[in-house]
Design a protein around this nucleic acid. Structure first.
Lengths: 334, 334
DNA sequence: CCCAAAAACCGAAACGTTTCGGATAATTGT
DNA sequence: ACAATTATCCGAAACGTTTCGGTTTTTGGG
C-alpha cells in the first residue's frame, strides 16, 4: 500500500542505504540527490517513523504526567510545552493522575511501556519514588513546579518564597500588620514554601508571627470557602488576606462576597494565579502571577536538550513570579 | 539489552511463534503456557509495542486536536477522554491549535505522520477539509462539540438550541420579556445554534425578536467586557441577560461589577459553563452547564468502538446541557 | 594520464514483533 | 492399535527503517 524506502530507491535508481543517508543528512552526489528528490515528489514518499523508531530505539514522543489537566495552572504549562515540543517533531502524551499517587505510578509505567523518550512530571508523590522505574531505563526526566530533592534530574520550579514575600511586602508597605494567610495542605511542598515566605517576610519586617493568622485548607474551592468562615470569625482584626493558590482565592472570595465583606474597604486581599478570575472580580484583584508559560517552555527546552546531547549536569531552575496590581489592596497608612 | 521474545522463547524452550500466540490469546497446551509464564516472570519480559506496531500497523495511540487546552471546557473534555482511552491501553497525544485553522491543518498532518490510530477533533475549520488527509488513510475520526456536516464520521455534540431554550424558558417563567443576549462570533457554529435557540424560545412564547437585544462578541473576556458597555447603554430596559459562553459570562460580570449594577435586583443574569466561576460569584450564578465529561467519555467510547470493529454506521450523538440554579435570576411577576 | 586517497554508494543484516504454511503432536472413532 | 482428523507448534518471512563492511566512483597531485 504505502510507498516504502525500497520502492523509492528502486524508482530513483539508487541503493536503499543512499536514500536513508539522504534523510539523515549524509553527503550525496548532486545527481543522486536530485534523483531522490524527484522520486520523493512523484511517489509522495514519507518516512515511517514507527519503523525508524524500532531501529533506533526512540519514539520522538514525550510523556507528561500532571495532577489535573482541568486546572488552569497545569493547562497553561502544558500548552506552551506541547507547542515547543511539537516544533521539534516530538509528540506529547498527557496523563492526568487526578492527584493520586497510585495513578501517578501507573502513568509512569504506562509511558515506559509506550516507550516515550522522556517524561515531564509535576509530581504528586513527594519522594519521587514513582520515577525510578523510568530513570532506570536511562531516559531523561524533567520535574516541574514541585521540587523532588531525592531525584537527580532537571527541575523547573517557581521561587515560591520570593513570590509570597513580594505579596506580603506590598501589604506591609501599605501599612498592614495583621495579615491573614489562607494556605494549603501541609504535605504539599509548594504550600510549605509559600508559608515559609510568609514567615520570612514578617520576620524581616520585625513583626511577630501569629499562628492564629494562618489557616490550612485542602486547596479546593469549597474547602477553602468552608474554612474561611471560622477563620475570619477567629481573627476579625485582620486587615489583609493572602490566598495561596487559585482555589483558595476563589473560595475566599466566595465567602467574602456572600457575607458582604467589602474589598478593599474592610479587608485588603491578594490572590494567586488565574488572571481571568482576578480581572473579572470587583474590584480587580491584585494577584501573584506564576510564570506558567515560561515553566512549560523551559521544561520543554530542557527535555529537548537532554534528548539531543546526553551529557551536561542537571539543572534546577527557579523562575520568578510577579505581582499583578489590581485594586484590592487599601493603604492603611498616610 | 532488553529481553526479547526470541530470548523468552529459547528460555522457555518453545518456539517464538508460540510465545506470540500466547500474548495474542491463542490456544496453548497447558504445559507450554506454564513454561512461558514462568519465563516471563523470571526474565521480566515485556512486549515491545513499537515493534508490534510496525508489524500490525497501529500504534495504540490517538490524537486529539483542540482549539485551546487552556480553556476549562476543553480541558474537562480531554480529562475524561484520556482517562477512558488509557484504560484500554491507548495513549492520547494532544495538539493545541490555538484556534487557528492553519495550525489545525498542521496538527492533522503531524498526527498522521506520527501514525496515530485515530483522531478526535474539536474543529476550528467548519468545513472539515483539514481532516481529509487523515480520513484518506481509512482511519477513524470523531468530531466533538461543533458539527461538521460535510464530514462522514461519528460526532458527539451538545444540543445547543435546547440548552439556550432552557435558560430563556426560566427567564420567561420569571416574567422577563426584554432579554439581552451576549453571543459569539457569527462564524462559530455553536454560537449560531445558541442564537437560534434564543429566537426559537422567544417565538414560541409569542414574543417579538428585537435585534437590538442581541450583541455579538469575539468570545474573549476582554472583548465581551468592551461590548457590554455600548450594549447596556443601548438597551437600558433589558431586565435579564444571557451570556453564551464562559468568556462572555466573565466579561459581562466584569462590566456589571465595575458599574455597580446589582444582580439580580437590577438585572437578572444567566451564564454559561464554568462552575467554579459561577459558584464563587455573588450571588451564585444560575448557569447553563454543558456535559463536558460526558462528551469526553462518549468520544473515547466511540473511538474505541471504531478501532475494534470497523463496520457500523456513523452516529451523531447530541447530549443535553442542564440548568444549574443559582440566585442570579429575579422573579418579576407574582 | 595514472594512482592513491577520499568520498559516495551499495546490499545485507539487524531491530522485535506477527503471520504464514508446513510439520508435529494429541485426539477421536473404529 | 491405527488411520484420520484436529489441535498445537514451529521456523522463516515480513513490516520499513538504519547501519555495517565492503565496493565503486570521484578527486587531486605528480
Amino acid at each position: 500500500m504505502a510507498v516504502t524506502m525500497k520502492d523509492l530507491a528502486k524508482y530513483a535508481g539508487v541503493g536503499v542505504a543512499t536514500v536513508s543517508s539522504y534523510f539523515n543528512g549524509g553527503r550525496l552526489r548532486p545527481a543522486n540527490r536530485e534523483k531522490i528528490e524527484r522520486a520523493i515528489r512523484e511517489l509522495h514518499f514519507e518516512v515511517n517513523e514507527v519503523a525508524r523508531g524500532l531501529r533506533v530505539d526512540h519514539t520522538k514522543t514525550v510523556g507528561v504526567i500532571i495532577p489535573e489537566l482541568d486546572n488552569q495552572f497545569c493547562a497553561q504549562i502544558i500548552t506552551s510545552m506541547e507547542d515547543e515540543l511539537r516544533q521539534y517533531g516530538y509528540a506529547t502524551i498527557v496523563c492526568d493522575c487526578r492527584t493520586r499517587p497510585e495513578r501517578e505510578r501507573e502513568a509512569v509505567d504506562f509511558l515506559r511501556r509506550k516507550r516515550v523518550d522522556g517524561i515531564i512530571n509535576m509530581p504528586v508523590d513527594g519522594t519521587g519514588g514513582h520515577l525510578k522505574v523510568f530513570t532506570d531505563t536511562e531516559r531523561p526526566v524533567v520535574v516541574i513546579d514541585r521540587e523532588l530533592p531525592e531525584i537527580e534530574c532537571d527541575q523547573i520550579l517557581v521561587d515560591n518564597q520570593s513570590a509570597v514575600r513580594k505579596a506580603i511586602g506590598l501589604l506591609l508597605e501599605n501599612g498592614h500588620k495583621d495579615i491573614g494567610l489562607l494556605g494549603g495542605p501541609e504535605n504539599v511542598a509548594t504550600a510549605r514554601e509559600r508559608l515559609l515566605g510568609y514567615r520570612g517576610a514578617l520576620e524581616e519586617a520585625g513583626l511577630p508571627f501569629r499562628p492564629e493568622l494562618t489557616e490550612h485548607t485542602d486547596y479546593t474551592i469549597s474547602g477553602s470557602r468552608e474554612k474561611m468562615e471560622a477563620f475570619y470569625a477567629r481573627v476579625p482584626d485582620m486587615t489583609a488576606l493572602l490566598a495561596l493558590n487559585y482555589e483558595t482565592t476563589a473560595g475566599a472570595l466566595m465567602y467574602l462576597n456572600e457575607k458582604g465583606i467589602r474589598i478593599p474597604e474592610q479587608l485588603s486581599f491578594i490572590g494567586f494565579d488565574n488572571r481571568d478570575f482576578a480581572q473579572a472580580a470587583r474590584p480587580r484583584l491584585t494577584i501573584v502571577e506564576q510564570p506558567t508559560s515560561e515553566i512549560g517552555l523551559q521544561a520543554a527546552r530542557r527535555m529537548l536538550a537532554r534528548l539531543s546531547r546526553k551529557e551536561e549536569a542537571f539543572r534546577i531552575i527557579k523562575l520568578q513570579a510577579r505581582l499583578l496590581m489590581g485594586g484590592s489592596v487599601r493603604a492603611l497608612n498616610e
